Amino acid sequence: MALADKIQQAWQKQSSWLIVFRPLSWLYRSIFLLQKSSQLKHAYRAPVPVMIIGNITVGGSGKTPLIINLVKYLQQQHIRVGVISRGYGGDGPFPILVNDQSLASQVGDEPKLIVQSTHVPMAVGANRQQAIELLLQHHDLDLILSDDGLQHFALQRDIEWVVVDSARGFGNERLLPEGFLREPLSRLNDVTVIEHNAFAHSALNMHLAVGQPYCLGDHSQVFDTEVHYRAVVGIGFPERFFQTLAQINVRYTAHVFADHHRYCLDDFKTFPAQPIITTAKDAVKLQQLWADQLEQLQRIWVVPVEAILSDACYRQLNTQLRQLDIAVSDDS
């Protein structure tokens, strides 16, 4: 097992040996605060309001489904929305616009999935100012959503939403690398916190609803729960995907890859002739890998999920948008 995997497991178990990383956590905190102070002095103010969707932990929290939900809602409200992202895992060149023809290897898996699901104007690049400027060169927008970037203080923001996954919690509540916090828990006092939990305690909450699995190469195929699948997953919190498979009674053998893993044919050379089941985020990369091999695509099944937000989330968003002079319909 790789060291990174061992550390991930130790974070979840709150293993006592993680204390050996405490000096590094102190160093991380010092560097983080210095960088934050420096970036804030020269932070870029976009000509349109910016809303950041992020988290304070390492690993998946359900952020991408939330962004897709918000984009669709804003589009229904006739708000001209665009999205920016770092484009992690993509080769660029950056900044770059994302469209339906973009490859996940070029723009990153999450941006590809977001545009594939919403057709929203989107630009990616580590320099978020450049991404915004490129986006605004091609689109007139009322609002820009930033996929992550909560800790990118070089970008001024008007709204900050942080997704907190109650299933994961905060581990030992320590900063990296002793724990999996990117920022101290006190950061949550300054943002809008969205609790990710089907049985949430907060009024501002979301959960993921599981859709009907579909075949990547042939949507007419009928999903069979009696078959044994190879579950291929490369996301920040793979355990959530396995919980989903258990929820829909899927029998599987797990194959876990790193978050944003770039799949290659060698990853599957020892696989038996069994169907593969995966996430929508992984599917955009597998579709590229076997783009000209329909037979391979016909053995890949995708489990779609949709973020379901509480009514309070939409009311909160509407209030925040009105404060920015962005018109929205009356709350239902």
Rank of each mutant, 00 (worst) to 15 (best):
A126H: 10
L103M: 11
I235M: 08
Q39G: 00
A209Q: 15
Q287C: 09
I31S: 09
L317A: 05
L135S: 10
Q101R: 14
A312K: 15
Q116S: 15
H196G: 00
S16V: 07
V81F: 11
A104S: 15
W11S: 00
R157F: 05
A200M: 11
S202K: 04
L265F: 12
K285C: 12
S61E: 09
Y88A: 10
P65G: 13
A307D: 10
L188H: 09
D311V: 15
R230T: 01
S329F: 01
I132Q: 02
K112C: 11
R128P: 13
A104L: 06
D267N: 15
L74Q: 09
E239W: 01
E160T: 01
A198G: 04
H119Q: 15
P272K: 11
C264A: 09
T64G: 11
Q288W: 02
G234R: 10
Y44H: 07
Q12F: 13
D109H: 10
A46M: 11
L297C: 02
V48I: 14
L40V: 08
P304Y: 09
L286A: 05
Q243K: 06
I159L: 14
Y314A: 08
F237S: 12
M122D: 06
A123V: 04
K13A: 12
A254Y: 03
L289N: 08
C264D: 10
A123T: 04
P213M: 01
D190S: 04
S38Y: 11
I84M: 06
S15C: 02
H152S: 04
I53F: 05
V163Q: 11
T253R: 08
G87W: 13
A10R: 00
F199E: 10
P111G: 08
V227C: 03
L18C: 02
S25T: 13
S117W: 03
Y214S: 00
Q156V: 14
I194K: 07
L34G: 07
S310T: 13
W290G: 04
T279M: 03
F223C: 07
